[in-house]
Design a protein around this nucleic acid. Structure first.
Length: 262
DNA sequence: CGTAATACG
């Protein structure tokens, strides 16, 4: 099966730039979207009344933030899920549209948008609070007898190999030792696996570039989008690719192939 | 500086 995760940086803007035309060609089974920056009713207004946002051949689910133009996740699936869960049962994740999960037999696939902390110290504190609470859920997930693929924008780089300017970003949100230690706990203590790194050990594999300067042209990037899997799926990871030429977002989609029937 | 509504990333 093929799972794609993509932070679209506004699904209406991405649609105008041809995101859905691109998606159609990708042979995805499940698509996890972050930062829709829309409420579902806005995708149904006459001027946007387009089956675009409900791509043909997919079951489509949106989980929006209460605040307009902000955050929001979505999930598209070729197969109808047994169950869809929106939110995590706590205010921050639920009012800001940050988590949606689809269950298929004993496999769950989720789309996560972890808060950014780059705009202020207050936002960073807010991000750390979310991470702390979310870690409890991740631990609970590991206690379930299910396999998980938690896709999304984690807004954190893990290692030096995951960012161009390692040294100069140690104090910047997304690359602080505290945040990277959180990923260490996730991978080395809780036991989740960074599916991309299972099959690709190369440097300069970024999924996000600042839109300031010529960051993208110079590949001055960060790898902050992941597919995090339970260890039972470790041997099922077949292939990973980052669609770094994505013209419809400041993030690059992460396309992963798994040896899983779907 | 872009997205989408005046903040947030």
């Amino acid at each position: 099966m093929r799972v794609i995760t993509a932070n679209v940086n506004g699904i209406r803007a991405a649609a105008k730039k041809g995101f859905f035309d691109w998606l159609k060609k990708q042979k995805a089974d499940v698509v996890c979207i972050q930062e829709t920056k829309a409420q579902e009713h806005q995708l149904k207004q006459p001027e946007h009344d387009d089956p675009l946002f409900y791509p043909k051949g997919f079951y489509s689910y949106y989980f929006d933030a209460e605040k307009k133009g902000y955050s929001g996740v979505a999930l598209y699936s070729r197969k109808e899920p047994d169950k869809i869960t929106m939110g995590l049962g706590w205010d921050h994740a639920d009012t800001e549209g940050r988590y949606i999960q689809a269950d298929f037999g004993k496999l769950s696939i989720a789309s996560l948008y972890l808060p950014s902390g780059s705009s202020s110290d207050e936002r960073q504190a807010n991000k750390l609070k979310f991470m702390d609470r979310f870690m409890d859920d991740l631990k609970a997930i590991r206690r379930q007898r299910r396999e998980f693929i938690i896709c999304g924008d984690y807004n954190i780089v893990h290692k030096e190999i995951d960012i161009k300017n390692w040294k100069s970003n140690q104090k910047n949100s997304g690359c602080t030792p505290e945040e990277r230690a959180w990923l260490d706990v996730l991978f080395y203590q809780v036991g989740f696996v960074d599916a991309f790194r299972e099959v690709n050990k190369k440097p300069d594999q970024y999924t996000w570039w600042s839109n300031r300067g010529n960051a993208r042209a110079n590949n001055v990037g960060w790898r902050i989008d992941y597919q995090i899997i339970t260890p039972g799926l470790k041997d099922k990871v077949k292939k990973a690719s980052i669609y770094k030429d994505s013209w419809f977002s400041d993030h690059a989609p992460l396309i992963m192939d798994y040896d899983i029937d779907f």
